[in-house]
Structure formats: structure tokens, C-alpha cells
Design a protein around this nucleic acid. Structure first.
Lengths: 183, 183
DNA sequence: TCCAACGTATAACACTTGTTATTTTACAAG
DNA sequence: CTTGTAAAATAACAAGTGTTATACGTTGGA
């Protein structure tokens, strides 16, 4: 009845997402995706109405990717927020372009930082409760301060202005937690 | 002997810099600058070899602009690093595109964050000495922590994830200073 | 086997970019 | 006033963008 499809929607999205990781969001153009996928631009517009739809799909995939990344990240920290921070900073180092897209770009149609962080598992809420249990009177404010700090370190890794080892980073995060707790 | 020049290098640079403030660096194209300056693209390439030279000039102007901004910023803070931080965060709020260019973009030919902050007046060194005088044993590490925190707050203003008043921000910066000092 | 239908490729359109070749214009010296 | 020179404007080129019209193939049922 009809020809069999050789380029699937998965091929397109996989390619576009891989390109975002490697070259950044702005390099994901119709022709470049097609070239990398080994086809013409036509299959892209068969499965996606236009490039904006593909970009949205890539964004959603990046959100899921970060949440998986966090789920699988080894828990070496012993204090509230330290694992959340270690994963976030490592992500900024290892996935610069995805980090930019998720946490620096903003723009319409994007989720808030908190939404992405908290995810479906309530990762942030969980850590805030840890702080409450540890005796913090205002865990919301503590989270805000910790997150400003963590976000600052992560953003500085992008520009090369922050480059401590994981051990040093963990120590810094936990000592900052203690410092903020003490007041 | 020859025609009088009507479009000066200052006109070009002023226009390009104003456009960077308002629309961001990526919108500074030859044709758009020309349109805004009310001329063709030709005068641009008379005074600048190519667009990259103009972009470099805009960048240098942004560096000078930030240093003026900091010089003129009202000193309301009483503790080390608080004025440095208040100015930086206000700059992120009021000059999003310049902040992005100076402190988030990185890339070749750009100065380091520290270079821009310290400026010719040694603004950072001055604040570090204040901390030393205040009895801090490792003012370098204190600066690092404070700066990570300040940079985090500034970056979060860009995405709309931070929106405290100046009074609240100052209180937060000074309490963080105290917290970091206490350990 | 043939053919309709759908996936893919090719080519084109309209637009934007930096840059450059060409033409026009204004100015001042002779 | 003429004329040479430099500035500015116009127009073009080559490359790249999203998108679409058209042509080509392949495939599976009649």
C-alpha cells in the first residue's frame, strides 16, 4: 500500500538531542540534523510540524535527562542539599550545553529551575524535609541560600571560573550548610 | 579634497553598544546597526575591518561600563563584599544583556570574571583586605565563597528565579558574610 | 504485474547573515 | 567651475536559515 518509513521520529530526536549535548542548542538546524541522521530535511518535517516543535521535544528530553542523571548520581554527601548540589555542579561540568538550556536560558515555554530540580520524585522537598528534621527552623530559607550558592558554583564552572575537585566541592557545600544552619 | 565624513566611529560604536544593552549581543548585525544609525552598512566597514572588530569594541565598552557602574553605585553595605555584591546583583537586574556578555558568555577574547570585577582600582583586592582587617584568617577563601553566592543570586535574576528587594538582598549578603566568617 | 499511496530526496523560495564590488555623491583644491 | 578624492549608498555574492513544492522510490494490496 505504501512505502516503509526508514527514518523514525526517534532517529530525529536522538540525533537532535545528541547534537544539543555536543554543540549546543543553537546549532540544531534542520539541515545539520538531517546531515547527522543521514537523510534529507524532509523526514524531519514529516514527524515535526516545524523546527520549534523539535526544539521543544529536545528541551523535554533534556529535562528527563537531568532527572535521570540526578537519580543515578552517587550519593556521597551526608548533609541536606549536598547530593542535590554535587549532582548539579557535576552536570554543569559534564553537560555544559544541556545545563545552559535547562538552567540559564529561560525564555517562553521553559520550566522554572525549581520544577526541573524537584522533578516527579519531589527531590527538593525531600531535602528540605531532611533539613527540617535536622533542626532547621526555616528550611525554606536555608534551601534558598544553599541553592543560590550551588547555582553560583555551577554557573562559574561554565565560564571556567570555578574548578574545584569533587572532594573540595563536597567539603565546601557541607561547610556552607553548617554555616547557614548556625544562624 | 574629499568628502566630509558624516558617520563617525563613535556613532557606530554608540549605536552598537546601545543595541547590545537593549536587544543583546546577538542582535548586533551589520544591517541592524546601520539602520539604527541611519546609514548604510558601508561606514561600518570603513571604521572597522569586520564585524568581529566591532563586537570586540562593544565588549571593551561593556567592561568599562560595568566599572563605571560599580564606581557610581551607592555604598549602602557595611560589611566586606556587600557593596561589591549589591552592585553586581543590581547590574544583573538592570542590564541583563550586558551581564550575560560580561559574566556568562565566556569564549575567546573575553576577560575573566575576576579581571572585570577587580578593574583598575583593585576593587576586589580592596574588599579582601577589609575582610582581613576584620579578622578573617583566610580572606581569599571567604571571597571565593561570597563570590559564588553573589554570582548565584545574580544569575538567578536573569531567569527570574531570584527576586528579592535590595533591602532583603543586603541583609542576606551580610548574614552570609557573617555565616562564612564564623567558620 | 500493476498501481495507488506514502516516505524520501531534490530543488526551490524567501529571508538573514557578513562582506565586497560598483556606483553615486559631496567636498575642497586648483 | 572643473576635477580628483574619499565617503556613502546601492547592489550584489556566497553562505546559511526555515519551509514548501515537486519529483522520485518503494512497498504492499488488487
Amino acid at each position: 500500500m505504501a512505502r516503509k518509513e526508514t527514518i523514525t521520529i526517534d532517529t530525529i530526536l536522538d540525533t537532535a538531542f545528541a547534537m544539543t549535548r555536543e554543540e549546543g542548542f543553537s546549532n540544531v538546524t534542520a539541515r545539520k540534523v538531517a546531515a547527522k541522521a543521514g537523510c534529507s530535511t524532509q523526514p524531519i518535517f514529516r514527524v515535526y510540524k516545524n523546527m520549534e516543535e523539535l526544539w521543544n521535544a529536545v528541551y523535554e528530553r533534556a529535562v528527563a535527562f537531568y532527572q535521570d542523571y540526578y537519580s543515578l548520581f552517587p550519593r556521597t554527601g551526608k548533609k541536606p542539599f549536598s547530593n542535590l548540589g554535587m549532582a548539579y555542579i557535576a552536570f554543569a561540568r559534564e553537560e555544559k550545553h544541556l545545563f545552559e538550556l535547562l538552567f540559564l536560558a529561560g525564555g517562553p515555554g521553559t520550566k522554572s529551575m525549581y520544577e526541573v530540580l524537584n522533578g516527579e520524585n519531589g527531590n527538593v522537598v525531600y531535602e528540605i524535609n531532611l533539613a527540617r528534621v535536622a533542626g532547621c527552623s526555616d528550611p525554606g530559607e536555608l534551601f534558598m541560600k544553599m541553592w543560590i550558592f550551588i547555582h553560583g558554583a555551577a554557573c562559574m564552572t561554565l565560564t571556567g571560573d570555578y574548578d574545584l575537585s569533587d572532594v573540595e566541592t563536597l567539603a565546601m557545600l557541607e561547610s556552607s550548610y553548617e554555616a547557614f544552619m548556625a544562624r
